[in-house]
Structures are given as C-alpha cells and as structure tokens.
C-alpha cells in the first residue's frame, strides 16, 4: 500500500506516504490530523470523517518540531489538501509537547490504544509496542479506551536501542539480526544479564569461550523476548493480541516471544507504525464532533 519508498534501514521499515484512493477530498466534512514524534520515526495521519485519508511515515531528525513538520508535509504531499483546512491536530509520542502545529497533546498510551482499535479492529484487547527507546504494554476495551497499561522507558533492555547496541557489538547489520539468530544448530540459553551493559560483557565472554556470533545473537533475541514477556505479564495478556512499533519487524525476538506466549499476534493490512498518529487523529475527530475543536 505504499507508493513511495525512499530508504531501507533499521528494522526494515521504509519511509512511506500513502493516500486513500477511495476517499475524495471534496466529500470530507471534518478533517483532523495526528502527529506522533517518536525517538526513531515520526508519523502524521490525516483522518477525514473518521477514516484514514492519508499518512506519512519518516525517520525522526535531530529536532522534534522539524520532524513533526516534515511528517505532516509528507502526509499532505499530492493529496491536494492544504494544512489550513485541518480542523484539529493532536500531537503524541515522546516529542508530543514539541509539535508546533498541534492544538493539544495526548499521551502515546491513549493514542496507541485508540489507533490499535482502528487498525486491528475493536476486538483487540492487548497491545504491545516496542519502540526505539521504550516498551509499552496496554490493555484496552472494545472502544479503544485504556484499561491497564505500563510503559518502560527507563531501561534500555527490551527496547530497540538495546538491540542496536548488541548488533553493533557483534558487527551485525540490524536488518540481519532476525534471520541470523535462527541460523544456528541448537537454540542456546538466553543471555542471563538483563542490563544491556552487563549483557555486553556477558556476550564478550561467550564469544571468547568459542560461541558463534549467530548463537550469541540467538541468546540475546531470546533474552529480549523473555524480558518483553515479563513486562506484558504484569498487566496480563487478554486476546486478541497485537504488536506495533519497530521491534514488530524483528522476527528473531517476535517469533521467540510468540512461542513463549503460545499465541498468535493479530495481522493487519495497515502499517503498524502509524497506530499512535492514527489514534491521535481519531481523538481529534471525536473532539471536533463533540464541539470541542478549534474555534
């Protein structure tokens, strides 16, 4: 569903924008936007009358306001829609307070639940989002309202950053981690240190004692899967279960996680990275409908 592909790196995601071919701009009554500025990627989603009209997904630059601006321009590109026509805009994500065109900000927890409810459908009850610098586990009801959540952004273990540090240490391109972690004779025991700093020391010791690089990768993917599982366990998993965020594309971790959990993750035709921005735009739509939008 993407019509433009720029570059491919980090978790195999592609910068992309998309316009809904079944929607006509001139038919739309309420137009809202959601902008999610994350640590690695930023997305802007345009919602027209409660449906996704267009989106843009790109890498976050060094500065949040500029990343928000770029993502929005990318979403608007070739849609014929002018920014002034947007009735309400909500910022979310870790840079949410630095989205200059936003009328208000809403937490990524609330937006992810709302967005997952849309892109996976109302039967989703648990959403796991593993991003570049955090891990979120959210339970929600049939309306996409949060019922239980936790977010861990204090510790790098179980985040994209932790995996990146490991890939660097082993000189393995991050995009090869998943495949190579399965190119082993036998599944090794997981790396025992949770702390990424100590896990690095442990990995160095394993290499010195003769482990192959792929075995160390497998041991770390498996440690990360266990780590993420222990976080979800705290809020309890209720089906149906969905995974969003960059880590969803690392099968080395995700396949092992699904094995531990003994269930299957939901699938969607949508790009899962837009969940937060879609939720923000949908919240904006509801606010406008309730007369709480921009005057």
């Amino acid at each position: 569903m993407t019509d433009e592909t720029k570059k491919e790196e980090f978790w195999r995601w592609t910068e992309a924008n998309w316009k809904n071919p079944d929607m006509k701009l001139e038919d739309l009554k309420i137009i809202t936007a959601g902008i999610d500025v994350g640590s690695v990627s930023s997305q802007a989603v345009i919602v027209g009358d409660g449906q996704i009209f267009a989106y843009g997904n790109m890498r976050t630059g060094s500065d949040s306001p500029e990343s928000a601006r770029n993502a929005l321009n990318y979403a608007l590109k070739d849609t014929g829609l002018h920014e002034d026509r947007i009735d309400y805009c909500i910022g979310t994500g870790y840079g949410r307070v630095n989205v200059p065109m936003a009328d208000r900000s809403i937490t990524e927890i609330a937006c992810h639940a709302r967005g997952a409810n849309f892109i996976y459908g109302p039967e989703v009850r648990t959403v796991l989002d593993v991003g570049g610098q955090d891990c979120k586990a959210i339970r929600c009801d049939g309306r996409g309202k949060v019922t239980n959540f936790l977010m861990n952004d204090k510790c790098a273990a179980g985040t994209g950053r932790g995996m990146e540090v490991f890939a660097d240490l082993l000189s393995v391109p991050i995009t090869e981690v998943g495949d190579r972690s399965f190119d082993i004779k036998e599944e090794p025991a997981p790396v025992s240190s949770t702390c990424v700093v100590y896990a690095k020391t442990e990995a160095t010791g394993l290499l010195r004692s003769g482990w192959e690089v792929n075995e160390v990768l497998a041991a770390y993917c498996s440690a990360m899967a266990e780590r993420i599982y222990s976080l979800i366990e705290r809020i309890g998993v209720q089906e149906k279960f969905a995974i969003t965020g960059g880590m969803a594309k690392n099968k080395g971790v995700i396949n092992r996680l699904m094995k531990i959990m003994g269930l299957e993750a939901m699938k969607t035709q949508w790009d899962t990275q837009i969940a937060g921005a879609a939720g923000a735009a949908l919240f904006a739509h509801t606010l406008v409908e309730r007369g709480k939008g921009r005057k």
Binding site: N148, F149, D153, K154, A157, Y198, R234
Partner: peptide, 15 residues
C-alpha cells in the same frame, strides 16, 4: 484504568 508508573530493570520491578 490501572495505570502502572515506573519500570523494570536488571535489579527488579519498580511500579
């Protein structure tokens, strides 16, 4: 809603 604030690191769970 049950809101869990805090974190889990190598030394334990702190929520």
């Amino acid at each position: 809603m049950k809101a869990n604030y805090g974190y889990k690191d190598g030394s334990g769970d702190f929520f």
